[in-house]
Amino acid sequence: PQAGSLGREDVRNCSSNPPFLPVTAVNTTMRLAALRQQMQAWNLSAYIITDTDAHMSEYIGKHDERRAWISGFSGTAGTAVVTMRKAAVWTDSRYWTQAERQMDCNWELHREGDIPSWVLAEVPAEGRVGFDPFLMSVDFWENFDLELQGSKRYLVSITTNLVDLAWGSERPPLPSQPIYALPEEFTGSTWQEKVSTVRSYMKNHTMAPTALLLSALDETAWLFNLRSSDIPYNPFFYSYTLLTDSSIRLFVNKSRLSLETLQYLNTNCTSSMCVQLEDYSQVRDSVKAYASGDVMILISIEYTNYGLYEVIPKEKVVINMYTPVMGIKAVKNSKEQALLKASHVRDAVVVIQYLVWLEKNVPKGTVDEFSGAEYIDDLRRKENFSSGPSFETISASGLNAALAHYSPTKEVNHKLSSDEMYLVDSGGQYWDGTTDITRTVHWGTPTAFQKEAYTRVLMGNIDLSRIIFPANTPGRILDALARKALWEVGLNYGHGTGHGIGNFLCVHEWPVGFQSNNINMNKGMFTSIEPGYYQDGEFGIRLEDVALVVEAKTKYPGAYLTFEVVSFVPYDRNLIDVSLLSPEHLQYLNRYYQTIREKVGPELQRRQLLEELAWLEEHTKPLSA
């Protein structure tokens, strides 16, 4: 493999004279000047701009895209800090090239190193470091505060957001679409059943909390089986829930609920199964008032913002990494499992239709990354129960695929060609489930290195998918299996190995996954399995499937688990080097291909998609060494 080429014109070069900025860079000079004016008024030496909203959402509404507005960098993860002289962004390897494409030379990009150390170096003693308490999790604040202790630099909570003041009238408005109840056929249990289950968890909790504060948007959406569209690709609405053993308080913009939805929630009473509506903006005052009594409030350290935490006396708060709702939601019941699986069969039809279309049209030279993304998005929208894509489609050809989260635009994209590898990572939101799948293909002659890298990524996917492990094993213990085949030859990937997925909820549904802050694996959980390999400046590979955690049959008795893959699209035979695969790999692959035929074949037949059916049969023929 060759190192990424120098002198590229797609990224900035701030060390050249004059500095080089690509067309994609955003001029932030005026924006920074406006923010620094506000910082001066508040006597701040630095101001922290996080990448999230008041609910610690991974994907946020346009009006919450403060870090993107001030820095130009639009990736979903990354924190900015602005001082009177400097401005800096920290982000992970998925977004380094994107940041170099979008930021101008006012900004430093930090690929590593922690933010508090930089703040300690840049802010003078007695300096005040401002932040919006609603946009920082308790976890983030505690870590930051710990680092600054004894340094004579002080974190200052300011409830007025200074970026918003600088943004002014250009800031997009708040959403106001209706909030609706999901039809019963698409829910695993009624909201009353869910409330009862959560209450019994609270009762059995060692700290016996009197109330549970739900801050993450998917927690409230799940609990009440309600949905809306406040955040792109996510069917959520801005809300909090304060649940006690005798009351339910839902903080929301009431005008967005129809009379029918109000009745569904029993809002005209105050007993234990009635939902009392309070205005969204009242949550801080209401939590503060509730906390003045003889109470104990359970919160999540990851999802609760510091603005709510700071109004609860410390002796009245129980901090857990995740709320019981997160844990209960992660284990899908049999109805939810069936719903999620059904959505994956329809989604496989979409991806297969797309791959067949690409095979016909790429050689004609008529497809680019953007038109491809539009095509697959349109296919999904035509499916039953569709509510659009579950994230911005990643359609990346050649070197662009080396950026794990690259998405093309109408203006800037790359033509698909038989000479390059192509990666498509996409998913749908359907009323019965959320999907997410990645396939990488090559329609011409791949290099030996590309075939080896692809096959090793596939080996990692198979090694993890077929593992048998004890119940309640932490995902992080399994993570190395997905990397083993790559590590053996000195290759790796810079992102996580997988994530939970929701029933018409988050595409990245925490806390299931393979990292240290994920919960232990148990029956009924769904996770993605997605190893990859990225050769900077050349190509990228990712093979992603969604799998259900199921009981494993073992020779000796015991509680053992394995994965049942529910994504049903074959891999690219053109990129598989069978000589690298073990007999176990081949046996697994051929069994998986048989399952694809059984699950998707009848659906293609039913719809008379005969070309796609022929393609499926061809691409799922048994492989041999």
Binding site: A77, D92, S93, R94, D114, D139, F140, N143, I301, E302, M321, F391, I394, A404, H405, D425, G427, D436, T438, P474, R476, G494, H495, G496, T497, G498, H499, V507, H508, G513, Q515, S516, N517, N520, S528, E530, G532, R542, E544
Partner: peptide, 24 residues
């Protein structure tokens, strides 16, 4: 879609909790 790698800041707290639950 590829998930981010856990930030080092929260790794310590998370590991402590995970080890506790694992040994239980």
């Amino acid at each position: 879609m590829a998930p981010r790698t856990t930030s080092l800041a929260s790794l310590w707290v998370a590991s402590t909790l995970a080890i506790l639950s694992w040994s239980n």
